[in-house]
Design a protein around this nucleic acid. Sequence first.
DNA 1: TGTACATATGAACAGTTATTCATATATTTG
DNA 2: CAAATATATGAATAACTGTTCATATGTACA
Lengths: 119, 119
Amino acid sequence: MANKDIKKCDCTIIHEDVVNKVKENMPPEENLYDLAELFKVFGDSTRIRILYALSASPMCVCDIAALLNMSQSAISHQLRILKQARLVKYKKEGKVVYYSLDDDHVNQIFAHGLEHVKE
Amino acid sequence: MANKDIKKCDCTIIHEDVVNKVKENMPPEENLYDLAELFKVFGDSTRIRILYALSASPMCVCDIAALLNMSQSAISHQLRILKQARLVKYKKEGKVVYYSLDDDHVNQIFAHGLEHVKE
DNA sequence: TGTACATATGAACAGTTATTCATATATTTG
DNA sequence: CAAATATATGAATAACTGTTCATATGTACA
């Protein structure tokens, strides 16, 4: 019953008890999918640099482009992705759009990630 | 001088002071690159599910494949990536290879990520 | 109203990536 | 040694992604 959708795997289930127990405690598929989507956003050095920059100060698009030495268009595209992931927010002042971090978790996720990387 | 490599950006630097200050406080390019590489590993739902499963219990390759209803080969390929990122370790016992989490940060990164996703 | 400028966006292209398939390696057991 | 089984791996392919280029949108100001 608990195994009814185990079929694609081409090998014997060696420890059925372990598999079933772990399966019971797995979070909903959807949560893990969303989590992967979130980390996918962090998984690009341009976006990481944008987030890091914004954690220091809100900035407009041109400033970010200048800071990272990249085209305005490239930055704008990436900001859209960060916006969709609710990681940055923006405030329009005339022609200029100021972006800033939208979430406290960002810094904490960063911190733990950096610990890992530095070891 | 601080601006010597600002050239690719096709727009005016609106707030040079902000840009320069943020630039001074940016971590080394290399660290941010490594950080992005780490998150890239988390940015796939198969790998996320493997990590989550292993956080519940060490498992062998066949068990993981059965649990996730995927081919042994696909799991093995992903385990190699997780191994290279030093996120999982393994112990060989006869024919069977047991994988387990290799890092405490994993759980903490997970936790903060889930907080974000659930909001 | 027209020009300049900050930002956004769609299409295209190049590079990357996850899975599959076939097969190799290694270990156990008969 | 031969057969069975657990795992690893290389090649191929399909899908995805980041940047560029061209252009559109929207605002300020002369």
